[in-house]
């Protein structure tokens, strides 16, 4: 079978132990206001347009069956409304101003690329990480990929937002060595506000997973001015106390990379958090605060 992915990143060194390759699944049930991979939220492919790279050659005007591209007053206008993301214009855009993000690939194709770095995984205790988007939105495909990776002797991580069907979680669990489980907000109402969904299901899934004895690291995206609240840190500490089998928590400081992408994909800007990366020293402060509350914070 094939799955929808939008990137394969080699030499990924912050998504689990060792040197890894991360496969980014397309599609996510949440919609976080700080999302760092907004192009991964929709399951369907998206056309990325970077006007700065456009040389105005006009190839896309001629290729697009829907007539999405036109030139007006020396400005390249792109009508995203009508775009069906067929990718034809991107194939003709040699400077790379247009790019179709999201593709269907088979597990075998992905594994061919993943296994190129096998020696690096073996020497570093690394392997494969599934991320996204949300890998558990495509449980059968994730399962197939994890089986293939396990057969090849790779260590497997799944990074999840936790908003998934219990069955999906149970399917991938036996083939997963380590879960990187995101906790975005411990307050129920705020969670719904920030991500579009309440967190009950996520927390229930986390407890369930913990109950099965799976290895779990909690990942905390911390966005200055959004969820760097003492109550949230308190909530995390309480959660960690409840789940003694956790391997620890990792702080994921906010960065602005997602900001830039929103424009490229013509996504809705209005909901986005107006945040900036933490100042130097701030992350250390968060770490200290959590540690004081007895949380085992891991540092890279």
């Amino acid at each position: 079978m094939t799955g929808a992915i939008f990137d394969i990143q080699r030499f990924s060194i912050h998504d689990g132990p060792g040197i890894r390759t991360t496969v980014f699944f397309k599609g996510c049930p949440l919609n976080c206001i700080w999302c760092h991979n907004p192009e991964g939220i929709s399951r369907a492919p998206l056309l990325s347009f970077r006007p700065a790279l456009c040389i105005g050659c006009g190839f896309c005007f001629r290729t697009c069956p829907a007539g999405c591209h036109r030139m007006e007053g020396g400005k390249h206008l792109f009508d995203r409304e009508r775009c069906e993301a067929c990718g034809r214009c991107a194939a003709e855009c040699y400077p790379g101003a247009l790019e179709l993000v999201g593709r269907e690939e088979s597990a075998a194709e992905i594994m061919r690329e993943v296994l190129r770095d096998k020696a690096f995984y073996d020497n570093s205790g690394g392997g494969l990480t599934l991320s996204g988007g949300e890998p558990l939105m495509q449980p059968d495909f994730a399962f197939e990929l994890l089986c293939a990776a396990r057969d090849a002797g790779l260590h497997c991580c799944v990074e999840t937002c936790g908003f998934a069907a219990r069955a999906a979680l149970d399917l991938v669990r036996p083939k997963t060595d380590l879960f990187l489980f995101d906790i975005k907000e411990t307050d129920r109402a705020r969670h719904a506000e920030l991500t579009g969904k309440p967190n009950d299901r996520i927390l229930a899934n986390l407890r369930h997973l913990h109950g099965t004895g799976a290895d779990i690291i909690l990942r905390l995206p911390i966005i200055p001015g959004v969820n760097d609240r003492p109550e949230h840190f308190k909530g995390i500490a309480a959660l960690a106390r409840d789940l003694p089998g956790l391997k620890g928590v990792e702080i994921m400081p906010y960065h602005q990379l997602g900001e830039n992408k929103v424009g490229r994909f013509g996504l809705d800007q209005s909901r986005r958090a107006k945040a900036s990366a933490p100042e130097p020293g701030v992350v250390e402060g968060w770490t200290g605060e959590l540690r004081r509350r007895g949380v085992n914070v891991l540092t890279a």
């Binding site: 990143q9 030499f11 990924s12 060194i13 912050h14 998504d15 760092h36 990792e250 994921m252 400081p253 906010y254 960065h255 602005q256 990379l257 900001e259 830039n260 990366a277 130097p280 020293g281 890279a300």
Partner: peptide, 27 residues
């Protein structure tokens, strides 16, 4: 370079981020 949780090619980053990283490396 490393940004937040992962590595990226420096020149592929948007210019604000590049400036940000440069500023931060100072510390």
């Amino acid at each position: 370079v490393r940004i937040g949780g992962y590595c990226e090619r420096f020149v592929a980053l948007p210019s604000e981020l590049q400036a940000d990283i440069i500023a931060r490396t100072m510390y």
